[in-house]
Simulated assay, not measured.
Amino acid sequence: MPPSDPAGDHRPAGRRGGEVTVELRDLEFYDDDDTAVLLLEATRLNVNWTGEERVDDAGVLADRSLAHYTVLHPGRGDFGLVAEIGGRAVGVVWLLFLDASDPGYGYVADGVPELSVCVWPGYRGVGIGRLLLEEAFLAARKRDIRRVSLSVENGNPATRLYRDVGFSDATGSAPGTMIVGLRP
């Protein structure tokens, strides 16, 4: 289980009529096994966003186009943040530097990381996703990253949030691919 008491940022996010404390942790703080479990769960939840179970954990790992989302490679620049409430992960955002030899669904160009974000059911719609995106953008700017992409399926309500934080359709890319420019 990931540690629950390291130093981290504390940000408020409203949830069901009250205020809760959301702690953000650097994803690299977790050990490799905990990170892999967390990203596997998040990837499965992202694929199954409609509520229909289209894929289980074994299916994610068996599908190369999904499995690469479950591995963080800090050496190539990958990074992410985990949102916790009471020491329990309730959301995660991670950016992977996938290249043309192993592109993600939101690939636009080498050197442009693809962002994935997931907020666990029961914690959606209260600002945690926006908080994760905004903090990921800050971390990206500190790393001198100027553009970030993502992929979202048609009909996914998260599209509204992505547009609200500045993402737009990526010209010349696969449908559902969006990009945002980050100002210094």
Rank of each mutant, 00 (worst) to 15 (best):
G106W: 05
L133Q: 09
D78P: 09
Y107Q: 00
G127S: 11
G129N: 07
G122Y: 05
W120M: 04
G111I: 06
A109F: 05
G80A: 08
S101N: 10
A109Y: 01
A89D: 06
L115S: 15
C118N: 13
C118W: 05
G87W: 05
V112Q: 02
G127H: 07
W94H: 15
A89M: 04
F97E: 04
G129H: 06
P103H: 00
G80E: 08
E84Y: 00
D102K: 03
V119T: 15
G125N: 06
V108G: 00
V126N: 13
E84A: 15
G87C: 10
G111F: 05
P113F: 06
D110Y: 05
G111M: 07
V117S: 02
G125A: 05
D99Q: 06
L81Q: 14
V119N: 09
L115T: 14
G106N: 06
G87K: 02
V112T: 13
I85Q: 14
L115R: 14
L81V: 15
E135Y: 14
F97D: 05
V119Y: 10
F137M: 14
D78M: 05
G106C: 06
G122S: 09
V108Y: 00
Y123L: 00
I85K: 06
E134P: 09
V90Y: 05
V108E: 00
G104Q: 02
G80C: 06
V92W: 07
V93M: 04
V92P: 12
R130P: 05
C118E: 13
D102N: 12
D99I: 01
W94R: 03
E134T: 11
G106D: 08
Y107N: 01
G77K: 03
V108A: 00
I85A: 08
A83W: 14
P103Y: 01
W94C: 08
E84D: 15
F97G: 02
L133G: 11
G127W: 06
L95M: 13
F137D: 05
L131A: 07
G91K: 08
A136W: 08
V119L: 04
G111D: 10
L132Q: 09
L138C: 13
G127M: 10
L133W: 11
E135W: 13
G80K: 06
S101D: 14
Y123M: 01
G111S: 12
I85S: 08
D99V: 00
P121K: 14
I85V: 15
F137N: 04
L81K: 14
I85F: 07
G106Q: 04
D99P: 04
Y107C: 01
G80F: 12
G125W: 03
D110F: 03
F137G: 11
G80N: 10
D78T: 03
L131M: 15
L115W: 12
F97L: 10
R130K: 15
F137Q: 11
D110R: 04
D99G: 10
C118V: 13
G86S: 09
A109M: 01
G129C: 11
